[in-house]
Design a protein around this nucleic acid. Structure first.
Lengths: 171, 171
DNA sequence: CCGAACATGTAACCTGTTACATGATTAC
DNA sequence: GTAATCATGTAACAGGTTACATGTTCGG
């Protein structure tokens, strides 16, 4: 069984041509979703673990910097496929900072709710613009992730609009 | 600054009448989102930390079981409000197991994609039914969270349907 | 030549999970 | 009386973040 981080790492190596730990880290750091920061302390140990389990092959250092080319072993590819097809996990409802807070917003005073809703609406729309721009510069796999991130922001917008409508009709 | 767990705990105590650590744990365990398991090893220490920071008031044990009633201090209420209104955090894109996997699905063989897409569609629809049933039994705050979880599943469904359409027109 | 980017890795810390330990209260 | 539930808490472990440590390669 792979953790979410391990699955993501194998995906980067096997399907997005991130052939070094450094590039995997870079991909995580640049990703607009806050899944992981791609900290050295998580990525290097995880790659070592995956290597020890025979899922990643690590070539000998290539240059003076110690650059090590990574690739998936057949076992690694199989493990990644299993992880990918785990539909129970895929359908689970992850952490969502928006969802965690939304309930409390509706307990604020009416005028404060209105102001906050409008602020959130504007900021979410801006987030979508920036995600859309980011998506264009990505390969297909990452583009799909961004597409889904945009879909999430759009569903937040729908919720906010609905909230605003109720507020205005109640006002 | 509060962490996501701390914010959620203060919300349970202050706005959902979970007046003991035990009931806070219960609320987390029963929640359909996989935010936290509500393990004793996370909740009790977090509540102790929040008490030490003066955000929670812990009454003396009430009975032989050592039941301790919890309530928010004015500082706790203020900290929770700050946490709630942190729109940068609220709009961030959390971990999503679906989003992490979706890209890889589109690299599978055509027939496999079709089968998987149909399977995911059916399972997601079922997840919505069960969320809808759960929502009815909840107070307003939790109902909103479930509402947003349903919206997430619906946006996944839209994506799957779109994927299916493309697959069928390409087949 | 010099700064930015490339590249690897470790150690201390924090926090969440699992498993353990203990006991009281309640419903049947 | 006894099983389920209520109730608190700790210890070992796992894994992610931050900060540190080190050295190379490339572009101007």
């Amino acid at each position: 069984m792979l953790t979410e981080l391990e699955g993501a790492i194998l995906t980067e190596i096997g399907f997005r041509a991130r052939h070094t730990a450094f590039k995997v880290r870079q991909a995580f750091r640049e990703s607009p979703s806050s899944d992981w920061q791609g900290s050295a302390g998580s990525v290097y140990p995880a790659i070592r673990r995956l290597t020890e389990r025979g899922l990643i092959e690590m070539a000998a250092p290539q240059d003076g910097r110690g650059t090590r080319l990574l690739s998936l072993t057949p076992d690694g590819r199989a493990a990644l496929l299993d992880w990918t097809r785990d539909s129970t996990m895929a359908l689970s409802i992850g952490m969502d900072p928006f969802r965690l807070r939304a309930g409390l917003w509706t307990t604020m005073a009416h005028s404060e709710q209105l102001a906050h809703a409008e602020h959130m609406l504007a900021m979410t729309e801006q987030a979508i613009v920036s995600l859309t721009g980011y998506k264009l510069r990505q390969d297909k796999l990452e583009a799909i992730q961004v597409e889904l991130a945009i879909a999430l922001q759009e569903s937040r917008i729908r919720w906010i609009r609905n909230w605003l409508t109720e507020l205005r009709s109640a006002g």
